[in-house]
Each structure stands twice: as C-alpha cells, then as structure tokens.
Amino acid sequence: MKYKSVFDIIGPVMVGPSSSHTAGAARIGRVARMLLGGQPTRAEITFYGSFAKTYKGHGSDVATVAGILDFDTHDLRLKDSLRIAKDLGIEVVLRTSEQVTEHPNTSRICLSDGEKTVEVVGVSIGGGKIEIIEINGFDFQLAFHAPTLMVLHEDRFGMIAGVAEVLTRHRINVGHMEVSRRVRGAEALMAIETDAEISPQVLEEIRQIPHIMNVALISPA
C-alpha cells in the first residue's frame, strides 16, 4: 500500500477508539449515504468478522450510523449517532453474521428512503481507509479517495465512449475506471475516478446520453 503523506501513516483526525473500526466504519456509512443521494428512512447494517465480534466496544455501530448521517470522522456527535438517528425518524437495524468474508472488517449496509434503495459492501483496511467491494450486486474495488462518477446504464456498445467523449470535451482527466455488470446485455455500472471535480453541467450532459439510467457523483469519503 502506498501512502501520500505522513498523515496517511499516522491515521485520520477522528473520534476514537480505532481507525479501522471507527473511522473506517464511518466512511463506509458515508459512502452508502452519498450513493443513496440523501438521508434514508431505514438503515440495515450487517457486521462480519472482527467487526461482528467487537463492534460495540470499538464503536463500529455508532460510527457507521454517524457516516449514514453524513457526520465526518472527527464530528463529536458520532458517539450520539444512534440517538440522533432515532430522533430523525431513521429506523436502524443492526445485525451480525458468522459468514466468512475475505476481509475481517467487513460491513453490508442497505439504505432506503422509501423510493430508492442502495446496498453497499465495504471493508475497512486500516488507518481509516476503506474499499467498497460491492454496490447493488455489482462487484467493484473502489476507495473513493477522488471524485467518482457512478453511471448506471444499459449494457450495450458505445456507452463508455459516450461518457468519455463528454469528459474529454470538458478536459476532465480520468485517473481510474471500472465497469461491472451482473448479466451480459442487461444493466452495467460504470465507476470513473477523476482528477478534478465534475460540474452539474457535465453530469447533466452525461444524463442526456441515450440508454443512461442514472448518474451520481461521489465526493471523497
């Protein structure tokens, strides 16, 4: 693993006690919220492995809910997130699973706002860093450390080229890209990390491409 600065080695500014079990958990929750596009009315959280064994003592439960509430890792409201969520009318369901996962610090978060649902599987890899390995059944390996464009589209010829043409026209450089599909010829999900922020105008131009179903922009978590 490469580090950009000494602060990546020391760890993030955060409410304790653990960068893996607290800061990482909060960031997974925050990514799930951004993918939903706002505050949910229901949150189902399942912890696996080490998360499942120690989530209460290490605060992974309150941290995950804090992320879902869009609190940063250093927000002192983190420890009161379960109460705050209840006051806001958010139903929170916490579960643990004995299923063996590839990484011990794994959580599955399913959020719903009554109209939309998003399900995310994330792992906390240490130092507050995370990877998202599944989004609504699509397999990925995303860190969300740069602005990331998520494009749901029909799985057909020319979709990647169409999105790339818009980004090229606006001189937006792509740092990393993944495309995942569950079934050939059905739906596919494109994830594009960029070197610069993407304006609402660019998002709207991408939405106007034929066979695009949904577009979302995820800021660094």
Rank of each mutant, 00 (worst) to 15 (best):
K2Y: 08
K4A: 10
V6F: 10
D8H: 13
I10F: 12
I10M: 12
G11D: 09
P12A: 09
M14V: 15
G16W: 13
G16L: 14
P17K: 06
P17W: 07
S18E: 11
S18A: 14
H21S: 14
A23Q: 03
A23S: 11
A23T: 03
R27Q: 13
R33N: 05
L36H: 03
L36P: 02
L36Q: 04
G37Q: 01
G38E: 05
G38V: 06
Q39W: 00
T41P: 06
T41Q: 06
A43K: 12
E44F: 03
T46E: 09
T46G: 14
K53V: 06
G57T: 08
H58E: 14
V62L: 13
A63D: 14
T64Y: 00
A66N: 06
G67E: 03
I68N: 08
I68C: 08
L69R: 06
H74R: 11
L76R: 13
K79S: 14
K79N: 15
D80Q: 14
S81M: 09
R83K: 15
L88S: 08
G89R: 07
I90R: 08
L94P: 05
R95V: 02
S97T: 06
Q99M: 14
Q99F: 14
T101W: 14
E102V: 12
N105I: 01
T106E: 06
S107P: 00
R108L: 15
I109H: 06
C110Y: 01
S112L: 04
G114M: 04
G114T: 04
E115R: 15
T117I: 15
T117Q: 15
K129Q: 08
I130V: 12
E131C: 02
I132M: 05
I133P: 07
E134K: 07
I135Y: 12
N136M: 10
G137F: 10
G137H: 11
F138M: 07
F140P: 05
L142I: 05
A143D: 10
P147K: 02
T148A: 05
M150Y: 01
V151D: 00
H153D: 04
R156F: 00
R156L: 03
M159A: 07
I160E: 06
A161S: 15
A161C: 02
A164N: 03
E165W: 02
E165R: 10
H170C: 07
R182A: 00
A186C: 09
A188C: 05
A188M: 04
L189K: 05
A191F: 01
D195I: 00
A196F: 05
I198C: 02
I198T: 01
P200C: 13
Q201S: 15
L203G: 08
E204R: 01
E205L: 04
P210A: 03
H211E: 13
I212E: 04
N214F: 03
V215P: 00
L217S: 03
I218Q: 01
P220K: 11
P220Q: 11
